[in-house]
Structures are given as C-alpha cells and as structure tokens.
Design a binder for these strands. Structure first.
Lengths: 232, 232
DNA sequence: ACCTGAACACCGTTCAAGT
DNA sequence: ACCTGAACACCGTTCAAGT
C-alpha cells in the first residue's frame, strides 16, 4: 500500500523548470512534516528523482530559483505609495510571512544570493528606501547591506526554528519555564528575577524591536549628515 | 593507503564526554574542509563512530554540549569592568570570533537553546547590560531577547556563509561585481548608481552597524521611560 | 532531447555481539 | 559497563541505457 505515488503524471512526463519550481514550493509549504529532498520532488512530480538534473545543474541552482520565486511572493504583498519606513516594515513583515510559509527554502537561503530578477527588485526597494531616508553613496550601500543581511538572518532563523522536530522545539520552548526557573538566584540574579517576563516575550514583539532598531539606525545616520545632503 | 586513521587511540579506547566534545571542536575548527559528522568524529577519536552513543543520547545532545563549550570561550574573552555598551560590544565581537572559529557548530546552533551553564552566564550578562541601561521587567526581557536572538542570527549567518563550498561562495561574492553591474539602469536605477559602493561594503562594517543599532535601541527605550525608573 | 534506474559515496542511528 | 561492526533507512549525484 504505502508506496503509491501522490500524483501519477508519468508516461507523458513533460517536466519544465516552472513545474519543478512549483512542486518544490508545494513540498516546502508542508514544513517540518515533509523534507525538501530530490527523491520527494520526484514523487511530487510523478517522475524519476533524477529527472530534475535535466533542468537544473544541481539542487543548489534549483533552490536559488525557488527562493527567487518566493521573493516574488514577498513583493506582491507590498502595496504602492508607502513612505520609506512603512515600505521597510512591509518588506520585513512580508519576508517573515513568506519564510514561515516555505521554511525549508528560507532556512537555507538566509546566507545566499539568488542573483535573479526578484532579488534585484528587493535590493532596489531597499536602496530606494534608504535613499529616500536621506542616505547616499557608501552610506546608502552600508545601510542597505545592514538591512538586507539582518532581514535574511531574522527570517532564516525563524524558518529554521519551525523546521526543527517537534520534540526539539518543545524542549527549547519549555526551557524558560523549566531549566531557567531552577537556576541559583545567588549566581544568576537577573534570570531569577526576570524568569516570568522572559517566558512571556512573544516572537512578534522581538521581531518588531529588531526591525524598528534598523529603521531608527537609518534615521539617525541620515540626521547626522550635513544639511546640504539634499541630493539632486 | 588512504584509510589509515588520523589518531589511533584504540584498544584502551577510554572515551569520555569531555574527550568527545574536544574532538568535536577540533573537527569544527577545520571549517568547510572537514564535515562535522559522526563518522569523522570516530576517526578523530580512534574509535568506532557509534561509540559516542554511549555518552550522548544523539548528535543533537552532543551539539548542544559542544556549543555550550564554545559559549565558554566567548565568555573568557570578555574583560571585567566594562560599561553595558562595551560589554555588549565585547559579547558581539567575541561571539562572531568564536562562531567563525567553529562555523559548523555556530551555523546549527543559531536557533537553538543549549540550556547549559555557559548559556545561563551569557543570558545573565545580557540581562545585566539591559538592566544597567535602565530597563526592567517586561522591557528588560523583550530587549534581552532582541539582543540574544539577533546576535545568534548574525553569527549563525556568518558561520553558515564560510561553510559553503568555495565555488558557491565565489559565485555569491562576485555577484556584486558581475550580475549586479549588468542590470538595466532604467529599471534598477539604485543598483546601477550604487553598484561600486555596494561591491565595497565590508562585512565588519555591516556587523558593526547591526550591533550599534541594537545598542541604540536599548538606549532609546530607556530614555523614553519616566524618570523614576531608578530602581532600588 | 529528455527520462529512467542502477549505482556510488555519503549521512545518523539501532542492535546484537563481543570484551 | 562500554565498544564494535553489520545493518537500516536515508541523502545528492553520476552515468549508461532506454525512448
């Protein structure tokens, strides 16, 4: 029984890069209950697992293409007409949303460059925001990188976390309520005093603090520049 | 030929958790040229690969123990007597240094909790810093989490990056000089205008911006509180 | 031109057998 | 009480063979 393929699309077997990317996203959307492997991909496509090597050099090239498709989903969710701060907030929130939708992709992509069209669009969006904030030249480049790398790191971290096996996650989550509540108050006074508050912090609030810290840093840098920085 | 084990410590084979952790750190310190696998660990110890299961439940439990040992190295590098800002800077710089020393460990630990002694000490250090900055209660807990998660995300991202195969890294690094220089200036004016500056941003400068943004956020939050926040 | 399937060189982990 | 080694259920990828 247990071996019948999910979708039997054999014989014809007309594969294409698009079909493979879409199948990858379907698998990635299943989160921790379905690993994103070449063999699983073959099953999902109703083809031999190695058939994808006819359309992508290796799994890494496929991954970058899939990630760029996910970037496209992020961009679709960002409305027009926002000021630079709200544009960055929309980018951050959208990135987190899409990363949690496809955690297997987001967790691997966190330190990668897709060098594809939607990444270009996101780079342009961030550059536009820091420029609108009043930065230019080396400053704009530096703060662009800080924002881009930080966002990738944040959402990649969140994605990796939801991918952990449930037992591991349960252990990590309960640690504030267990191990951290049993520390010696003499040796760890801060932990003992703030144990309750530490257990109650929400991931959303932490994410907000981190995003707002970046926005404030851009604003502070722009404010520290000489007035004549009103570029043409 | 090619099969002689690196260190033959057989027959006696007196393994211990400490010896296994130290062998793990030696392997992890070899970075991308030597994967941190159970089989490699057996070779390093001059024992059968599966012998470690007599001392650790599974690879994950070993990893957390190894990570906590690495946290100890971070703490050793932080001098006494620093103010809260310099303490956080020393923690950030030390974390990055140790993460790049043992990238295989740091890249996996970025979204984990070791629940071991040195993690407690780092939590206490950060809590002490935000308290000294003037935060308390839910605020202290929230900004603790923002700092801790951000640091883990930053150094984990950096560690994952140096672990990539050289070809992949070369492709990512050259992208600013190649793909990003060939974009259509009409469609991506920001990229076209700042291409040179983007290629020149250093990873250290980006890291600094991110760390200083966190410190400034703590300071701003503390400054926004009513005066009477001079706790007992 | 594209797909198949056996095969290779890897993983982490279990378990019966040794000492 | 601890270590060994065969074995299992996985990985990504190559390549000769099919159509």
């Amino acid at each position: 029984m247990a071996k019948t393929p999910v979708r039997t699309r054999r014989s014809g077997s007309q594969l294409s890069p698009e079909a493979i990317i879409e199948a990858s996203l379907r698998i990635a959307a299943r989160g921790s209950q379905d690993a994103f492997t070449v063999r699983r991909l073959g099953e999902e496509l109703g083809a031999d697992p190695t058939a994808i090597y006819r359309h992508f050099r290796d799994k890494d090239e496929l991954l970058l293409s899939v990630a760029d498709r996910a970037y496209g989903e992020v961009l679709e969710g960002i409305p027009d007409g926002l000021g630079w701060k709200d544009r960055l907030r929309a980018l951050a929130n959208g990135s987190l949303r899409v990363a949690l939708k496809y955690p297997a992709v987001a967790s691997i992509t966190a330190s990668r460059t897709t060098r594809r069209i939607n990444e270009f669009r996101i780079v342009e969006l961030i550059l536009g925001a820091v420029t609108e904030a009043g930065l230019d030249g080396a400053d704009a480049a530096l703060y662009y990188r800080a924002v881009a790398d930080a966002l990738l790191a944040y959402v990649g971290q969140s994605a990796a976390y939801v991918l952990f096996a449930p037992e591991i996650r349960a252990g990590d989550e309960s640690s504030w309520a267990r191990e951290y509540r049993m520390v010696d108050p003499g040796r760890f006074p801060g932990i003992a005093r703030l144990g309750t508050e530490l257990a109650q912090v929400s991931a959303e609030a932490v994410f907000d603090v981190r995003v707002e810290a970046l926005i404030a840093a851009i604003e502070a840098r722009a404010a520290s520049l000489p007035e004549d920085a009103t570029r043409t």
